[in-house]
């Protein structure tokens, strides 16, 4: 039985007060184990991105608990939370968020260097991460010298460089074509299989299908869980 690395327990999130009150999440619960990828699908405004930002400690839930590897995020002090975020959680966004003035390897090594890891060691870890994405040869290029698909693979490498165990991705292939998307999700999946817990927010069914479980969120509540329970033979693939 793999260890649960990320857990949301009855999380509610409300923005505004009185007439302007918006319930973004109405009691969402979720567990993600090591080596597991969970996809969250839902319409715009369903609360899926809020769920991801709360899971990553970027926002605090109004009520409920978020636990990452035995830490309860709402009880941590800001400095502790920042450290946990930097060391444990990796984010992948649609728009890559790479720093244009840094080379690929410098971008990937940056989170480690910010954490006080020596440059040589950080670069070694960054190169390992790039090589696991099959883009080691791009290490010394700048972001504007590589393609969109390559940039996203760099962003994924950055998201799990070092000891990070939880990977959160928000529409990671939103800006990519179909073939490149598949290469990116394949790389992401490979990384999850190596023992990371992943949450993938997407409206793309083809992408979500790479997950072990698909949760459907509507009006701030998880209304459905779809697991891969049938074999392709059953429907004549």
């Amino acid at each position: 039985m793999s260890k649960v690395l990320l857990e949301l327990i009855d999380v509610q999130k409300t923005y505004g007060t009185g007439e302007n009150e918006v319930h973004a999440l109405r009691g969402a619960s979720l567990q993600v184990k090591a080596g597991e990828l969970v996809a969250i699908m839902g319409a715009s405004g369903s609360g899926k991105s809020t769920l991801l930002t709360i899971a990553g400690g970027l926002e605090v839930p109004t009520t409920g608990d978020v636990r990452i590897i035995d830490n309860s995020l709402p009880t941590l002090k800001p400095a502790q939370l920042a450290t946990l975020r930097r060391q444990t959680i990796g984010y992948v966004f649609q728009d890559f968020n790479l720093i244009p003035s840094l080379t690929v390897i410098e971008n990937v090594a940056l989170p480690l260097e910010l954490d006080g890891v020596k440059v040589r060691k950080a670069r070694k870890a960054a190169l390992d991460a790039l090589e696991s994405m099959d883009i080691g040869e791009l290490a010394d290029r700048f972001p504007d010298e590589i393609s969109g698909g390559q940039r996203q693979r760099v962003a994924i490498a950055r998201s799990f460089v070092g000891p990070r165990q939880v990977l959160l991705a928000d529409e990671p292939t939103g800006a990519l074509d179909s073939k490149t998307s598949e290469a990116v999700i394949r790389a992401l999946r490979k990384r999850i299989d190596a023992g990371i817990a992943g949450v993938l927010v997407t409206h793309d069914a083809k992408l979500a299908a790479w997950a072990d479980r698909i949760l459907v969120i509507r009006d701030g509540q998880i209304v459905e869980e779809i697991s891969n329970t049938i074999t392709p033979e059953q429907f004549g693939a």
Partner: peptide, 16 residues
């Protein structure tokens, strides 16, 4: 939709 999503998942798992 649930049925089709499951099919898609199963196909993807095989392709993986």
């Amino acid at each position: 939709r649930v049925q089709t999503m499951r099919n898609l998942q199963a196909l993807t798992a095989t392709k993986r």
